[in-house]
Amino acid sequence: MAIDLDLCTGCGDCALACAQENNMPVFEDDSDLPKRVQFLDLMKVSNDRDAAYPDVEVCYIPKMCQQCEGNDPKNPKPPCVSVCPVVATDVGDDGIVSQIWSRCIGCRYCQASCPYEARAFNWWKPRYEGDFKKSLNPDVSVASRGTVVKCQFCSHIWKRERDRAVAGGELDINAVTYTPACVAACPTRAMVFGDLDDPGSELSRLLSREKKRTFRLIHTIDEMKEKDEKKWKAMMQAKNYPNPKVYYLTSKAWIKEMMKFK
Protein backbone atom coordinates (compact mmCIF):
# COMPACT_ATOMS: atom_id res chain seq x y z
CA MET A 1 0.00 0.00 0.00
CA ALA A 2 1.12 3.54 -0.62
CA ILE A 3 -0.25 6.67 1.02
CA ASP A 4 0.46 10.02 -0.57
CA LEU A 5 0.62 12.50 2.27
CA ASP A 6 0.68 15.40 -0.19
CA LEU A 7 -2.85 14.42 -1.17
CA CYS A 8 -4.04 13.43 2.28
CA THR A 9 -6.21 16.08 3.90
CA GLY A 10 -6.47 14.12 7.13
CA CYS A 11 -10.23 13.90 6.74
CA GLY A 12 -10.30 10.56 8.58
CA ASP A 13 -12.75 8.82 6.27
CA CYS A 14 -10.36 5.89 6.06
CA ALA A 15 -10.59 5.43 9.82
CA LEU A 16 -14.38 5.52 9.83
CA ALA A 17 -14.73 3.18 6.88
CA CYS A 18 -12.29 0.81 8.53
CA ALA A 19 -14.21 0.82 11.79
CA GLN A 20 -17.49 0.17 10.02
CA GLU A 21 -16.11 -2.59 7.82
CA ASN A 22 -14.20 -4.40 10.55
CA ASN A 23 -16.82 -4.35 13.33
CA MET A 24 -14.68 -2.26 15.62
CA PRO A 25 -15.70 -2.92 19.20
CA VAL A 26 -17.58 -0.17 20.95
CA PHE A 27 -16.40 0.41 24.49
CA GLU A 28 -17.87 2.57 27.20
CA ASP A 29 -15.50 5.39 26.25
CA ASP A 30 -13.88 5.23 22.85
CA SER A 31 -12.07 8.48 23.29
CA ASP A 32 -9.91 6.72 25.88
CA LEU A 33 -7.05 6.54 23.45
CA PRO A 34 -4.69 4.14 25.24
CA LYS A 35 -7.37 1.47 25.54
CA ARG A 36 -9.60 1.96 22.53
CA VAL A 37 -9.54 -0.51 19.68
CA GLN A 38 -8.94 0.70 16.16
CA PHE A 39 -7.02 -0.65 13.22
CA LEU A 40 -6.36 2.62 11.55
CA ASP A 41 -4.95 5.41 13.65
CA LEU A 42 -4.84 8.99 12.42
CA MET A 43 -1.61 10.27 13.86
CA LYS A 44 -1.21 14.01 14.12
CA VAL A 45 2.40 14.82 13.47
CA SER A 46 3.96 18.25 13.64
CA ASN A 47 7.52 19.38 13.46
CA ASP A 48 7.35 21.58 16.53
CA ARG A 49 10.19 19.50 17.92
CA ASP A 50 12.52 21.04 15.34
CA ALA A 51 10.86 24.34 14.45
CA ALA A 52 9.22 27.31 16.11
CA TYR A 53 6.21 29.41 15.16
CA PRO A 54 5.56 30.25 12.34
CA ASP A 55 7.78 27.65 10.65
CA VAL A 56 5.86 24.73 12.05
CA GLU A 57 3.74 22.41 9.96
CA VAL A 58 1.30 19.65 10.74
CA CYS A 59 0.07 16.62 8.90
CA TYR A 60 -2.06 13.62 9.64
CA ILE A 61 -0.53 10.22 8.97
CA PRO A 62 -3.00 7.36 8.65
CA LYS A 63 -1.30 4.37 10.23
CA MET A 64 -2.54 0.82 9.98
CA CYS A 65 -0.66 -2.47 10.30
CA GLN A 66 2.45 -1.99 8.22
CA GLN A 67 2.51 -5.67 7.22
CA CYS A 68 6.21 -6.11 7.95
CA GLU A 69 8.14 -8.92 6.32
CA GLY A 70 11.60 -8.76 7.89
CA ASN A 71 14.84 -8.92 5.93
CA ASP A 72 14.02 -11.99 3.90
CA PRO A 73 11.03 -11.69 1.55
CA LYS A 74 11.12 -15.44 0.87
CA ASN A 75 10.81 -16.23 4.55
CA PRO A 76 8.82 -13.32 5.95
CA LYS A 77 9.26 -12.81 9.66
CA PRO A 78 7.37 -9.83 11.07
CA PRO A 79 8.33 -8.96 14.64
CA CYS A 80 4.93 -10.05 15.92
CA VAL A 81 4.56 -13.44 14.27
CA SER A 82 7.53 -15.21 15.77
CA VAL A 83 6.66 -14.21 19.31
CA CYS A 84 3.12 -15.59 19.42
CA PRO A 85 3.07 -18.62 21.72
CA VAL A 86 -0.06 -20.14 20.19
CA VAL A 87 0.38 -19.47 16.44
CA ALA A 88 -2.56 -17.09 16.45
CA THR A 89 -0.80 -14.83 13.98
CA ASP A 90 1.00 -15.72 10.78
CA VAL A 91 2.02 -14.40 7.38
CA GLY A 92 0.03 -15.75 4.48
CA ASP A 93 1.16 -16.28 0.89
CA ASP A 94 -0.43 -12.94 0.11
CA GLY A 95 2.04 -11.26 2.47
CA ILE A 96 -0.67 -10.17 4.87
CA VAL A 97 -0.02 -10.67 8.56
CA SER A 98 -3.15 -12.43 9.71
CA GLN A 99 -4.53 -12.95 13.17
CA ILE A 100 -7.01 -15.59 14.32
CA TRP A 101 -8.98 -13.90 17.04
CA SER A 102 -10.46 -17.06 18.47
CA ARG A 103 -6.99 -18.57 18.85
CA CYS A 104 -5.47 -15.62 20.71
CA ILE A 105 -4.94 -16.11 24.43
CA GLY A 106 -4.35 -12.42 25.01
CA CYS A 107 -0.76 -12.49 26.23
CA ARG A 108 -0.04 -9.26 24.32
CA TYR A 109 3.48 -10.34 23.45
CA CYS A 110 2.84 -9.39 19.81
CA GLN A 111 1.66 -5.98 20.91
CA ALA A 112 4.82 -5.42 22.89
CA SER A 113 6.94 -6.48 19.95
CA CYS A 114 5.23 -4.27 17.37
CA PRO A 115 7.21 -1.08 16.71
CA TYR A 116 4.24 0.55 14.99
CA GLU A 117 1.64 0.16 17.74
CA ALA A 118 -0.55 -1.43 15.08
CA ARG A 119 -2.14 -4.03 17.30
CA ALA A 120 -4.94 -3.45 19.76
CA PHE A 121 -6.18 -5.45 22.69
CA ASN A 122 -9.80 -5.73 23.76
CA TRP A 123 -9.39 -4.41 27.29
CA TRP A 124 -13.14 -4.37 27.78
CA LYS A 125 -15.93 -6.43 26.45
CA PRO A 126 -17.06 -5.01 23.10
CA ARG A 127 -20.47 -3.44 23.60
CA TYR A 128 -22.66 -3.32 20.57
CA GLU A 129 -25.66 -2.08 22.40
CA GLY A 130 -29.14 -2.23 21.01
CA ASP A 131 -29.33 -1.85 17.29
CA PHE A 132 -25.62 -1.24 16.85
CA LYS A 133 -25.51 -4.98 16.34
CA LYS A 134 -27.49 -4.53 13.14
CA SER A 135 -24.66 -2.78 11.37
CA LEU A 136 -22.16 -5.58 12.03
CA ASN A 137 -20.47 -7.12 9.04
CA PRO A 138 -20.88 -10.90 8.99
CA ASP A 139 -17.59 -11.34 7.11
CA VAL A 140 -15.53 -10.22 10.09
CA SER A 141 -15.89 -12.16 13.30
CA VAL A 142 -16.54 -10.20 16.42
CA ALA A 143 -13.59 -10.44 18.77
CA SER A 144 -14.19 -11.24 22.39
CA ARG A 145 -12.74 -9.47 25.39
CA GLY A 146 -9.11 -10.20 26.10
CA THR A 147 -7.87 -10.85 22.59
CA VAL A 148 -5.52 -8.95 20.34
CA VAL A 149 -6.89 -7.75 17.02
CA LYS A 150 -5.22 -6.10 14.07
CA CYS A 151 -5.62 -4.73 10.57
CA GLN A 152 -5.48 -7.44 7.92
CA PHE A 153 -5.85 -5.17 4.91
CA CYS A 154 -9.51 -6.24 4.78
CA SER A 155 -8.51 -9.62 3.42
CA HIS A 156 -12.10 -10.77 3.89
CA ILE A 157 -13.01 -8.45 1.03
CA TRP A 158 -10.50 -10.30 -1.12
CA LYS A 159 -12.21 -13.55 -0.22
CA ARG A 160 -15.53 -11.98 -1.08
CA GLU A 161 -14.23 -10.76 -4.42
CA ARG A 162 -12.68 -14.14 -5.21
CA ASP A 163 -15.88 -15.96 -4.34
CA ARG A 164 -17.74 -13.59 -6.58
CA ALA A 165 -15.21 -14.08 -9.38
CA VAL A 166 -15.41 -17.85 -9.08
CA ALA A 167 -19.17 -17.68 -9.20
CA GLY A 168 -18.79 -15.58 -12.32
CA GLY A 169 -16.63 -18.20 -14.00
CA GLU A 170 -13.18 -16.75 -13.27
CA LEU A 171 -10.59 -19.53 -12.91
CA ASP A 172 -7.41 -17.76 -11.81
CA ILE A 173 -8.47 -16.55 -8.38
CA ASN A 174 -5.05 -15.09 -7.62
CA ALA A 175 -5.57 -12.57 -10.37
CA VAL A 176 -8.59 -11.18 -8.56
CA THR A 177 -7.89 -7.79 -7.07
CA TYR A 178 -9.71 -5.96 -4.33
CA THR A 179 -9.73 -2.67 -2.47
CA PRO A 180 -9.57 -2.44 1.31
CA ALA A 181 -12.22 -0.30 2.97
CA CYS A 182 -9.85 2.55 3.84
CA VAL A 183 -8.58 2.86 0.27
CA ALA A 184 -12.10 2.74 -1.13
CA ALA A 185 -13.17 5.51 1.21
CA CYS A 186 -10.33 7.93 0.48
CA PRO A 187 -11.95 10.96 -1.17
CA THR A 188 -8.72 12.36 -2.58
CA ARG A 189 -7.28 9.07 -3.85
CA ALA A 190 -4.29 9.50 -1.60
CA MET A 191 -4.19 5.78 -0.85
CA VAL A 192 -3.19 3.26 -3.44
CA PHE A 193 -3.43 -0.45 -2.87
CA GLY A 194 -2.05 -3.19 -5.06
CA ASP A 195 0.35 -6.04 -5.56
CA LEU A 196 3.95 -5.10 -4.80
CA ASP A 197 5.18 -8.30 -6.44
CA ASP A 198 3.55 -7.40 -9.73
CA PRO A 199 5.73 -4.76 -11.42
CA GLY A 200 2.84 -3.80 -13.66
CA SER A 201 0.44 -2.89 -10.88
CA GLU A 202 -0.53 0.72 -10.35
CA LEU A 203 1.14 0.60 -6.95
CA SER A 204 4.48 -0.71 -8.20
CA ARG A 205 4.53 1.81 -11.00
CA LEU A 206 3.75 4.63 -8.59
CA LEU A 207 6.51 3.59 -6.22
CA SER A 208 9.15 3.25 -8.92
CA ARG A 209 8.12 6.60 -10.38
CA GLU A 210 8.10 8.42 -7.06
CA LYS A 211 11.27 7.03 -5.47
CA LYS A 212 12.37 10.44 -4.25
CA ARG A 213 9.17 11.04 -2.31
CA THR A 214 8.94 7.58 -0.80
CA PHE A 215 9.67 6.76 2.79
CA ARG A 216 8.48 4.31 5.42
CA LEU A 217 7.40 5.03 8.97
CA ILE A 218 10.40 5.37 11.32
CA HIS A 219 12.31 3.00 9.06
CA THR A 220 15.48 5.05 8.69
CA ILE A 221 17.49 2.12 7.33
CA ASP A 222 16.13 3.00 3.86
CA GLU A 223 18.14 6.17 3.91
CA MET A 224 21.32 4.22 4.56
CA LYS A 225 20.77 2.27 1.37
CA GLU A 226 20.96 5.47 -0.63
CA LYS A 227 23.92 6.84 1.27
CA ASP A 228 26.16 3.83 1.71
CA GLU A 229 25.03 0.56 0.25
CA LYS A 230 27.88 -1.43 1.78
CA LYS A 231 27.09 -0.28 5.26
CA TRP A 232 23.43 -0.91 4.59
CA LYS A 233 24.19 -4.51 3.68
CA ALA A 234 26.26 -4.98 6.83
CA MET A 235 23.46 -3.57 8.93
CA MET A 236 20.90 -5.78 7.28
CA GLN A 237 23.02 -8.75 8.23
CA ALA A 238 23.56 -7.54 11.78
CA LYS A 239 19.90 -7.22 12.52
CA ASN A 240 16.49 -8.14 11.22
CA TYR A 241 14.49 -5.05 10.22
CA PRO A 242 10.71 -4.88 10.17
CA ASN A 243 10.65 -3.85 6.50
CA PRO A 244 7.06 -2.63 6.35
CA LYS A 245 5.07 -2.98 3.15
CA VAL A 246 3.22 0.31 3.58
CA TYR A 247 4.93 3.18 1.81
CA TYR A 248 4.33 6.85 2.38
CA LEU A 249 4.95 9.57 -0.16
CA THR A 250 5.69 13.18 0.62
CA SER A 251 7.45 16.09 -0.93
CA LYS A 252 7.96 17.74 2.43
CA ALA A 253 11.39 17.26 3.99
CA TRP A 254 10.16 17.87 7.52
CA ILE A 255 7.96 14.79 7.53
CA LYS A 256 10.91 12.59 6.67
CA GLU A 257 12.95 14.42 9.28
CA MET A 258 10.32 13.68 11.91
CA MET A 259 10.76 9.95 11.26
CA LYS A 260 14.10 10.15 13.04
CA PHE A 261 14.60 10.05 16.76
CA LYS A 262 16.59 12.91 18.13
Binding site: S82, P85, V86, V87, R103, I105, C107, N122, G146
Partner: peptide, 19 residues
Protein backbone atom coordinates in the same frame (compact mmCIF):
# COMPACT_ATOMS: atom_id res chain seq x y z
CA UNK B 1 -4.51 -13.00 35.50
CA UNK B 2 -2.32 -11.34 32.94
CA UNK B 3 -3.57 -13.06 29.81
CA UNK B 4 -6.80 -11.80 28.39
CA UNK B 5 -8.28 -15.24 27.90
CA UNK B 6 -7.41 -17.36 30.95
CA UNK B 7 -9.73 -20.10 29.76
CA UNK B 8 -7.63 -20.46 26.64
CA UNK B 9 -4.41 -20.78 28.64
CA UNK B 10 -4.07 -24.41 27.55
CA UNK B 11 -3.68 -23.32 23.91
CA UNK B 12 -0.01 -22.95 24.81
CA UNK B 13 0.21 -26.74 24.99
CA UNK B 14 -2.08 -27.63 22.14
CA UNK B 15 -0.93 -25.05 19.59
CA UNK B 16 2.69 -24.42 20.53
CA UNK B 17 4.69 -22.21 18.23
CA UNK B 18 7.52 -24.63 17.55
CA UNK B 19 9.58 -23.71 14.57
Amino acid sequence: FDIGQPLRAWFGYTYPNWG
